[in-house]
């Protein structure tokens, strides 16, 4: 049912987008993401990375071309079917978009509440995840008092809490130091190992080189898929990831002890 006619998680065919009457920010974008793939989305500032992600998380409709998600043609999908599709997508927004009157806990709990998960289950999962991203002591704090890096981690926790089938992250490590950036990348890789398709827009070339996942490159509104649809999360990455995760866990416990 999820993959009717196509087993791609995301498929763009000649997609173009313009804001209002402005120039086309994206032109003729065509690509497909296989289930379980891991891609970096690269491009200079203003190249259209956020715009491309917005199309993927259904915050924008293309001005031309065809987008299909989980095998559903978005042009023929009714508004009432959108919530179910969106629940399969986790998003880390570039500007976080946390709800400022809610605690870190309630922000992270949102996707579960929206999906009608029982409150006692929510409690356990949310606290566990917040602990994992190093915010064990900030569970009941509102985002406004958190630092940029801490807010970013709350946003990431919110994006992954419901184990989405597709994770889209817009510069998710822009506000944290390299060690935390690496740690968060490992969180994405762990999710990827569980079958989640991942797209991460980033500037951080070092990170991209170290992790070595295939890249989608945006340049002047055109997409260049130098290594398209290559199965990501190969054995080496997974192995490195396991080691890194256990390392991070040790790091985490020493951090919370301090």
């Amino acid at each position: 049912m999820i993959t009717e006619g196509s087993d791609c998680v995301v498929r763009f065919e000649s997609v173009g987008l313009r804001y209002g009457l402005g120039p086309e920010v994206l032109q003729d974008i065509s690509f497909a993401l296989a289930p379980g793939s891991f891609h970096f989305l690269l491009g200079a500032s203003g190249a259209g990375k956020s715009t491309l992600l917005k199309l993927m998380y259904l915050a924008l409709k293309p001005t031309r071309g065809l987008i299909s998600l989980f095998g559903h043609n978005m042009a023929t999908t009714s508004r009432r079917q959108l919530p179910a599709l969106r629940r399969r997508i986790g998003v880390v927004f570039q500007d976080f978009r946390l709800l400022h009157h809610l605690s870190a806990f309630d922000n992270v709990a949102l996707p579960l509440r929206v999906a009608g998960v029982r409150e006692n289950e929510i409690r356990k999962h949310v606290v566990e995840l917040l602990t994992w991203v190093g915010l064990k002591d900030h569970v009941n704090i509102r985002p406004t008092i958190l630092s940029g890096g801490q807010q970013q981690r709350v946003a990431i926790a919110r994006a992954v809490i419901a184990r989405p089938k597709l994770l889209l992250a817009d510069e998710p490590t822009g506000n944290v130091d390299d060690r935390m950036a690496m740690r968060l990348m490992h969180l994405f890789e762990e999710l990827n190992k569980l079958g989640t398709t991942i797209v991460i827009a980033t500037h951080n070339e070092t990170l991209v080189r170290r992790l070595g996942h295939p890249r989608l490159r945006l340049d002047a509104g055109c997409l260049d898929t130098d290594t398209p649809d290559q199965p990501a999360a190969g054995e080496t990455a997974a192995g490195a990831f396991a080691a890194a995760t256990s390392g991070s866990r040790a790091e985490q416990s020493s951090e919370s002890a301090a």
Binding site: Y57, L58, A59, L82, P83, A84, L85, R86, R87, I89, V91, R97, L99, L110, P111, V114, A115, R158
Partner: peptide
């Protein structure tokens, strides 16, 4: 409006 848009993007139905 902003918060409601976030709720929508997270998968909230109108009824929520």
């Amino acid at each position: 409006h902003e918060a409601i848009e976030v709720l929508h993007l997270i998968g909230a139905q109108d009824t929520y």
